[in-house]
Amino acid sequence: MLKTRFTEEFGVEHPIVQGGMMWVGRAELAAAVSEAGGLGIITALTQPTPEDLVKEIAKARELTDKPLGVNLTLTLSINQPPYAEYRQAIIDSGITIVETAGSDPTVHVEHFKEHGIKVIHKCTSVRHALKAQRIGVDAVSIDGFECAGHPGEDDVPGLVLIPAAADALTIPFIASGGFADGRGLAAALSLGAAGINMGTRFMCTTESPIHEKIKEQIVEASELDTQLIFRQLRNTMRAAKNSVSEEVVEILGKGGRFKDVQELVAGTRGRKVYENGDSEAGIWTVGMVQGLIKDIPSAGELVTRIAAEAESTIRGTSDLVVDPVPVG
Rank of each mutant, 00 (worst) to 15 (best):
D154R: 00
D278N: 15
A188Y: 08
A148R: 00
Q227R: 12
G328L: 12
I42Y: 06
A89T: 08
D92T: 12
G25V: 09
A84N: 12
E247G: 02
L2V: 14
L2M: 14
I16M: 12
R26S: 05
G158N: 13
A240F: 15
A31L: 09
S77F: 13
T46E: 04
N235E: 08
L224R: 11
T200Y: 01
G25I: 05
F202W: 11
M198K: 09
V244G: 06
G182V: 09
T226Y: 02
K59A: 15
V219Q: 08
G94C: 10
G316T: 06
P105S: 12
T64E: 03
D167S: 12
D52R: 12
F230E: 04
A166T: 02
F112D: 07
E114P: 13
H14L: 09
L39R: 03
A188W: 06
V289S: 04
I16P: 13
T124P: 11
R238S: 00
I210W: 01
V261C: 10
A166D: 06
A186T: 05
R305T: 15
L233E: 08
A27P: 09
P82E: 01
F230V: 01
T317Q: 07
V12E: 04
G328A: 13
S125C: 09
V303E: 08
I57Q: 08
V249E: 13
L189D: 11
D65P: 07
G158R: 02
Q133R: 06
D104A: 10
S245M: 05
G178P: 13
A32T: 11
H115V: 01
V265N: 08
T96P: 00
M288R: 15
I78D: 13
Q232D: 13
F10I: 07
Q88S: 05
I97R: 02
S298R: 06
E56Q: 10
E246P: 01
E301W: 03
V109I: 06
E247W: 05
P326T: 13
I90T: 09
A36Y: 12
G11M: 07
A166H: 14
N79W: 11
F179K: 04
T7A: 03
T4W: 07
C147W: 00
T205R: 12
K254T: 01
V289A: 10
Y83K: 02
A175Y: 07
E110Y: 01
M237S: 13
A132T: 07
G195Q: 03
R127P: 04
I90C: 11
F173I: 00
V98N: 05
K3G: 02
P81E: 15
N276Y: 09
P50T: 01
S93K: 11
M198R: 10
L45Q: 03
L2T: 10
F145I: 00
R231A: 14
P67F: 10
F202A: 08
V119W: 12
T46R: 03
P326W: 09
P297A: 00
A60R: 02
I142W: 01
G144R: 01
V107A: 15
Q217Y: 09
P297K: 01
T64N: 03
G267K: 04
T313C: 10
T7K: 12
R269C: 11
D181M: 06
E207G: 07
